[in-house]
């Protein structure tokens, strides 16, 4: 008498939209292009924003952003699933941006230009009102000008911490320095920012020279 074989239970893979970044990366490594696209949708704007702030040029930023994701796609096994995906992806983007600046800097300086080489799209209904949009653009321009004036080390920390909202520890991992160093660089970057924004701040008369 043969025992009836029980059907093997196989867990359904989690839907892409609900899967964690790290799980998606494992699936990308297995050739799942849907997982890759999900990751792209999740991070495309964050990476573009980061690179755009870093290099100060929208066109190059788009290229670098594309290259970041292509690298992810071409070599997904470079990512160690035990680590955090966002940290790794920002590291890839940062390295590309650094390489880019290294190549570009001797020839030209990064400058947003009078007519604004970068384009900032409005985020929501409030920003679509002409006044808000104008103010937003002005702020964007000032922020980018200030970013361009920072050194690379201060700029990357400022973008990642103060603009992208990453923790000191995550940024430390991305830029390869202790969290304490991240903190001090961020403080210096913010101080320079604050100084440059003095004329725009209501409490400027209170600021010490």
């Amino acid at each position: 008498m043969s025992a009836q074989r029980r059907p093997e239970f196989q867990a359904e893979p989690a839907p892409l939209a609900e899967a964690s970044d790290e799980v998606l990366m494992v699936r990308v490594a297995e050739g799942d292009s849907g997982a890759y696209e999900t990751l792209y949708q999740r991070y495309k704007s964050r990476i573009l924003t980061f690179v755009m702030r870093y290099v100060g040029d929208r066109d190059w930023a788009e290229d670098l952003c594309q290259e970041t994701f292509l690298r992810l796609y071409r070599n997904p096994r470079a990512f160690d699933p035990r680590n955090r995906f966002s940290t790794w992806l920002f590291t890839v983007a940062r390295n590309l941006a650094i390489d880019f600046l290294r190549r570009k800097r001797p020839a030209t300086s990064i400058d947003a230009g009078e007519d604004g080489d970068y384009r900032i799209e409005p985020a929501g209904p409030e920003a679509e009102r002409p006044v808000d949009r104008t103010l937003m653009r002005e702020l964007e321009r000032r922020v980018q000008d200030n970013l361009n004036a920072l050194s690379d080390k201060l700029r990357e920390v400022f973008i990642l911490c103060a603009m992208q909202g990453l923790s000191y520890e995550e940024v430390a991992q991305i830029v390869g320095c202790p969290a304490k160093t991240v903190s001090s660089r961020l403080a210096r970057a913010r101080e320079r920012f604050a100084q440059s924004f003095d004329p725009y701040l209501a409490g400027k008369e209170r600021r010490k020279p």
Binding site: T49, P122, G124
Partner: peptide
Amino acid sequence: LPAIENEAPCP
């Protein structure tokens, strides 16, 4: 500040 919209297709 809003993130910059990235409308490029998945590469």
